[in-house]
Write a protein that binds this DNA or RNA. Structure first.
Length: 652
RNA sequence: GCUGCCGUAGCUCAGUGGUAGAGCACCUCCUUGGUAAGGAGGAGGUCAUGGGUUCAAGUCCCAUCGGCAGCUCCA
């Protein structure tokens, strides 16, 4: 007999070797359990328990249960694909669980099309109804496992390759339901009837083991949940994300365009340029407060410079080159060399440090056509870049200042949670161990000083120094990496940068590269989706629309309102069309203009306007001067939420 | 770059190998109106580009360019 400890229930004595399910037999609701946890490890319910252990049921609703469900659903999807094409025509690769679902990679006689999906889904439902028991089979070692896959099917080179990579001398497990067997660590649901609600999402190509030199496989993405509600919620979330897609909104709101004549090089339309410029202006304020100096450096410089900076060696594939009077030039992919040259004009004194040189620099990088994506992955973009040249003992306070700046900006923009990552020394690196120790310590200490929560990405630093990366969460919970703060010991050497220290010796400055927005292009792309196109007043391309009820009777009042708004610097217009009011409201609302001022008989004589927000809220009738003062406050304080609330309902 | 899908009016999209279509937007006229679409008329096309098959190609085939999803890359 062994002793099983069941949390919240107590200890029970059972014969050694009973299954986890049997051990849990008395637990309330155990019939719904999808797996068991033995001493904290999730296993099949059918797994025997051979010695004293803590055993608990893994119930639907827990993350572990969902993972088991999705993993099993992946197997069932593979089985359905096998039935759809015939087992002998399919070669199976891998089928892991990912965030929000799972996928499975196959080699198939022909590519999957959207028409295959419903057929595969139907087969999955059939397999669920067949209520096939899912059983675990163990191979002694790798040879045994190889024999098992070869006996099971004609083509198994991917599975064989996987097995060959397993550690020697360890067992290998397989799972079988019905005619389908798959190499798998498990655990799985006990039978296919326990499957929840699943949906096939998309088809894509993927390389075997992510290597573009290897076989290209067909990848089928899908998801599964226990509760139909959750599946619907995910589908809704995907639809919501699609509605916010910055490429669609960018087109509809006339913010930017990317045309075939310049693939990957965005055109900023007037509306988008307003946003672009205001973000730059905002960042200028921020860096002026922090005593940065702004510079501008050339877009095209001779090859030798890029060879000296190391870009030619490390970044050549992503650079554009051109020839001028038989000399080879490169278009800048980064701003660092220009800043370094700027720094090196004249001998610097320690009194000038930290010297913070900012540049809203336009960079060009060659990106492969398949990687381009709206504004978030482009071939030309403007970075809100800066290079800080400081003495080693100033490094930490500079880092502190940058982390604070980042947090301040992201908070003012309205992002949710901010995650920080410390990326430490990679295997391939420059500089001495002391330098790395020092730099990493400085970063760690800075993060500790502000009490920041952060994760460490070991070995993820740049070859010249460690960095802090920021990830922000947008309004619908997606994460974007924007800001990066990088410490660089190599650049000062490469460009022979020096300053005169207080003891009269020449010293190398430490260089910090950083961008807060990252690139303005990507930042605007993220912002469009974050705000769903509803930009806060200070950024909105059009801030106020004046809508006369009758375009001739109320023309004077509308014109006056417009003039006053424009005098106070608002981007405003009057809808002079002869449409009815309802239509004018619809059009202005679709343009996501924050405030609509309706002016009719009731307002014209009193110098007021009936104010409506783009979300449909009626803010009531306000005197024009008072209204404009409030709007100024909303704009000038860069409020994220409207300053005007719903007017109280008037009862007559 | 790779695999698959796609490319028709400014936008969103229909279109059976046999005369090029709709809605919105645009222009003109009527309508002067009260919180998300008033009415009528008009204009707008090298069906991405180049080849091929066919009596006949928007439609079938090939190539190129561009877009989308994913992979890879980047961060």
């Amino acid at each position: 007999m062994i002793t099983i400890t069941i949390p919240d229930v107590g200890d029970v004595q059972v014969p050694a070797g009973v299954t986890a399910a049997e051990a849990l037999a008395d637990v309330k609701g155990v019939r719904k359990a999808v797996a068991a946890k033995v001493d904290g490890v999730v296993v099949d319910l059918s797994r025997p328990v051979t010695s004293d252990a803590t055993v608990e049921a893994v119930m639907p609703g827990t993350p572990e249960a969902l993972e088991v469900l999705r993993h099993t659903t992946a197997h069932v999807m593979a089985q359905a694909v096998a039935r759809h094409f015939g087992m002998e025509n399919v070669e199976f690769a891998i089928g892991p669980v990912i965030e929000d679902g799972f996928y499975y990679d196959f080699e198939l006689p022909r590519p999957l099309t959207d028409e295959d999906l419903p057929a595969i889904e139907t087969l999955m439902t059939t397999i669920k109804r067949e209520n096939l028991p899912i059983t675990r089979h163990e191979a002694e070692d790798r040879d045994d496992a190889l024999a098992m896959v070869r006996a099971d099917r004609a083509k198994s080179r991917f599975k064989e390759e996987l097995i060959a990579g397993f550690p020697e001398g360890e067992g290998v497990s397989f799972y079988r339901q019905g005619e389908f067997m798959d190499l798998c660590r498990g655990p799985h649901l006990p039978t296919t009837s326990k499957l929840g609600f699943s949906k096939l999402l998309s088809v894509a190509g993927a390389y075997w083991r992510g290597d573009e030199k290897r076989e290209q496989l067909q990848r089928l993405y899908a998801t599964a949940f226990f509760d139909k509600k959750d599946l619907k919620a995910l589908i809704h979330r995907r639809a919501e994300a699609e509605k916010r897609d910055h490429r669609k909104l960018g087109q509809r709101l006339e913010l930017f365009r990317i045309v075939p004549e310049a693939p990957g090089f965005p055109f900023w339309l007037p509306n988008g340029t307003v946003i672009f410029n205001h973000l730059v202006e905002y960042m200028r304020e921020k860096i002026q407060e922090r005593h940065y100096q702004e510079i501008r450096t050339p877009h095209i410089m001779i090859d030798d410079l890029w060879k000296r900076s190391g870009h030619f060696d490390h970044f050549h594939e992503n650079m554009y080159f051109t020839e001028i009077e038989d000399r080879s030039f490169a278009v800048k992919p980064m701003n660092c060399p220009g800043a370094a040259i700027t720094f090196s004009q004249g001998l610097r004194s320690y009194r000038e440090l930290p010297l913070r040189l900012a540049e809203f620099g336009l960079c060009h990088r060659f990106e492969r056509s398949g990687t381009l994506h709206g504004l978030t992955r482009v071939r030309s973009f403007v970075q809100d870049d800066a290079h800080i040249y400081c003495a080693p003992d100033q490094l930490q306070s500079e880092i502190l200042g940058l982390v604070a700046l980042c947090r301040e900006v992201y908070e003012e923009i309205g992002f949710g949670e901010i995650e920080m990552f410390l990326a430490t020394r990679p295997d391939d690196r420059a500089g001495t161990e002391e330098m790395w120790d020092h730099a990493e310590d400085e970063l760690r200490e800075a993060l500790a000083k502000i009490g920041a929560d952060y994760s460490v990405n070991e070995g993820d630093g740049a070859f010249y120094g460690p960095k802090i990366d920021f990830k922000v969460q947008d309004a619908i919970g997606r994460k974007h990496q924007l800001c990066t703060i990088q410490v660089d010991f190599a650049m000062a050497e490469k460009f022979d940068l020096e300053y005169m220290a207080d003891d009269g010796t020449r010293q190398r400055p430490v260089v910090v590269h950083r961008a807060i927005f990252g690139s303005i292009e990507r930042f605007v792309g993220v912002l469009i989706e974050h705000y769903a196109g509803n930009f806060p007043l200070w950024l909105a391309p059009e801030q106020v629309a004046v809508l006369p009820v009758s375009e001739d009777r109320h023309a004077d009042a509308a014109g006056n309102a417009l003039q006053e708004l424009r005098q106070r610097g608002f981007r405003a217009h009057v809808d002079w069309s002869n449409n009815k009011l309802g239509k004018k409201i619809r059009e202005a609302t679709l343009k996501k203009i924050p405030y609509l001022l309706v002016i009719g008989d009731r307002e014209a004589g009193h110098g007021t306007a009936a104010v409506r927000r783009r979300d449909g809220t009626d803010c009531g009738n306000l005197e024009l001067g008072e209204l404009i003062a409030l709007l100024c406050e909303e704009r000038d304080t860069r409020r994220l939420t409207p300053i005007l609330d719903a007017a109280p309902k008037e009862t007559e």
